[in-house]
Design a protein around this nucleic acid. Sequence first.
RNA 1: GCGGGUGUGGCGGAAUUGGUAGACGCAGCGGACUCAAAAUCCGCCUCUGGCAACAGAUUGUCGGUUCGAGUCCGACCACCCGUACCA
Length: 837
Amino acid sequence: MSQRFNALSADARWQRVWDERRTFAADDHSNKPKSYVLEMFPYPSGRIHMGHVRNYTMGDVLARFRRMNGMEVLHPMGWDAFGMPAENAAMEKGVHPGGWTRDNIATMKAQLKRLGFALDWTREFATCDPEYYGHEQALFLKFYEAGLVYRRESAVNWDPVDMTVLANEQVIDGRGWRSGALVEKRKLNQWFLKITAFAEDLLSGLGELKDWPEKVRLMQENWIGKSQGLTFRFALNDAAGTNEGVVEVYTTRPDTIFGASFVAVAADHPIAQAIAANDAAVQAFIEDCKRGGTTAAELETQEKKGFDTGLTATHPFDPFQQLPVYIANFVLMDYGVGAVFGVPAHDQRDFEFATKYQLPIRRVVSDGAKDAPEFDDAEAYTGPGILVNSHFLDGMDVEDAKREVITRAEAGGWGEGTTVFRLRDWGISRQRYWGTPIPIMHCDGCGAVPVPTAQLPVKLPEDVSFAIPGNPLDRHPTWKHVDCPSCGKPAVRETDTLDTFADSSWYFIRFASQPDDKPFDKAVAEQWLPVGQYIGGVEHAILHLLYARFWTRALQHIGMLDVAEPFAGLFTQGMVTHETYKSSDGRWLSPGEIENGIEVSTGQPVTVGRIEKMSKSKKNTIDPEPIVDQYGADAVRWFMLSDSPPERDLEWSENGIEGAWRFIQRLWRLVGDQGGGDAGEDIALRKVAHRTVKGVAEAIEGLQFNKAVALIYTLANAVEKAQPSGDRDAALATLLRIVAPMVPHLAEEVWAARGGEGLIADVAWPAVDQAMLVDDEVTIAVQVNGKLRDTLLMPKGVAKDVAEAQALASEKVIRVLEGKAPKKVIVVPDRLVNIVA
RNA sequence: GCGGGUGUGGCGGAAUUGGUAGACGCAGCGGACUCAAAAUCCGCCUCUGGCAACAGAUUGUCGGUUCGAGUCCGACCACCCGUACCA
């Protein structure tokens, strides 16, 4: 074997062999135990970035490891190919979104191939393939039949200059990103999926996902946001005291009802709308509420504004107390019933509102220190406590008081205890071209009519223009004009397309089974599902993962698939980061524009900024492809796995990849060594080898690749230092196998050179001899008052009193004790002795 | 604003889940080999004081529980992710 590992030739050779032999094509009919390893499929943005490399390397190591452990592994790849960037490219460069996307896919596929991932490319598809989105349309119609789809008005960001809907991302500081116009909310009729029908199931299902990160389950739980509260009605009166009907409110704090000082309704609440009909001032205020975008962060942080309607609401427990009714910009029509009562002393938002409009602030829950009705603290008290100034509730704790108010409201017939979820139905309408057409037609006579299944897929027209803003489907001359399948009269197609989250809500099912005539085959898909290990960025912790969970449950609900949870195991990996650089005049600079701290083009010194996520805007990206050219796939893979724990950020560094490359070469020299055939024993080395095998296996299964790497270094170090022996030869053979999932090209090359049979990709993971894992000696720490003073080498399992006696006999201990008698001695077997003096 | 997370040497991190803090790697320093360099190999490497033995300090900050805290509890600080039309 040559002195150096020639990565470039080895990479190409083995990638070709794996391709030709279809080594990683999963067999639906295998009788081996099945394992589905999946990484979140990429959006074809142009080129592979380091985040992809890291994500797919992790999944690849696990997939290869499971193959070596006798499993039939499904490890597929495809493309999340619909989305806004393709339309942006179309507008900026005059290309077709489809062509742009296809080109990107070709580039990125070639780049992925060069990293030697053990992927089943036979199952590849892109979500923009009509074969895929046609089946998605079929699923949409199944959901429609099952009553899980409906249409209603909902607000979008509206750019009044470009006359177009903007994504939240396209609103910058309240203005449209192209026109610069102030964005406003506008209501459109849009399609929704009834995810709230599954709120309870999606919540309780989290309990079964024990192989999900706790943080993701928590985030989803809070997102679904189940709360118990009271829905009740205030009698509504005008200024003259005449009854004007009722206003219904929802609250999670019925206990604080005696602290109420106002009622607030949303700007689009029917009461607000009714008053506005003949009051210009109210109308103006409601118009004012429409300013700005639709994001929660914007709504929550904007200035709290209210408009006093002049109406009052009668307190249900006190007919003499009248609460002013406001229209407020912070009340959302989408949550609860679109109206709340304000308790300034015990809700921070209400507190700010009351302060601004000089409404009473009355304490009704004691914080333990104060209980007078006058409230003079700087902020609301929202903690637990005992009710005060609340008539019959006085003396109760918060929970008891909630129950008491609900009981009385129900008895009095003016309210009921209700469960409300924060989760809102999934708005799936997008006023855009590059997405799955929603397979509905609108007929004047018949209303919304589903496209007949035989007419699927509803394909996107190719001849579209992006010269002007707005949805090209809407202004296409012919595409939307059809005959109603029900009555035959002229009708129009729905021109909204589906949210791309719909595409990614079932792609993992299509990977498992992809017949031509239906979205998937139930029995085949169920063989693979749920996905055993799903890996991707934590930024998807809520939306994508919740939508996919919902979609799967909806399929189960309509009997198409008997799987409740799509992803049994989830792992969220960290980002790849890099230093940022700025020129002397404040421009971002890419690493390539700098040499030795000097900007090459100007000769000016460069400022090194913070380490941040690689992004085009900060110019701190490193293109993986030239790195692979220079160092080979294995070095890149090794670097991606080393050092940083996978769930944390990984800082890309030149030193890091250099170090990985050096280790690859060292490994090559080491495992390339044929060994001397020496029969001698080296029990210590044998122990290290077996421990390493066990430790690496556990680390890979636990996706703790940095630990696996550290263990492999330890074994490599031990083998290098060892004298020739049969155990050394065995350790080398072991080392080769355990690095195979991480550096597969090098491993195949050595395996072949050493005359190994077949591919190392198909070889079994080494067996562990349990006897090699036990130690007969242990090092015991000796502490005085918890401070380490000495260590003792003792036989494993030594009796407590022996350990104690030896510890007390230690010279160092005697010196520290200075003749004082120990008060107490704590002995932890095989671990430590702590002398309390 | 709200929800979630992270914080340990010069750097990335490890720590048997309450029991010897700093494994392993990177960088650095010293040495070997070489005419020289690269590569490789050997050694040192948390900080402070000390020639050393050794002593003291140290896991974002402050406080608490415990024989013993990186790990548990409370308060705070900084940064990151998400916030429903970016994917």
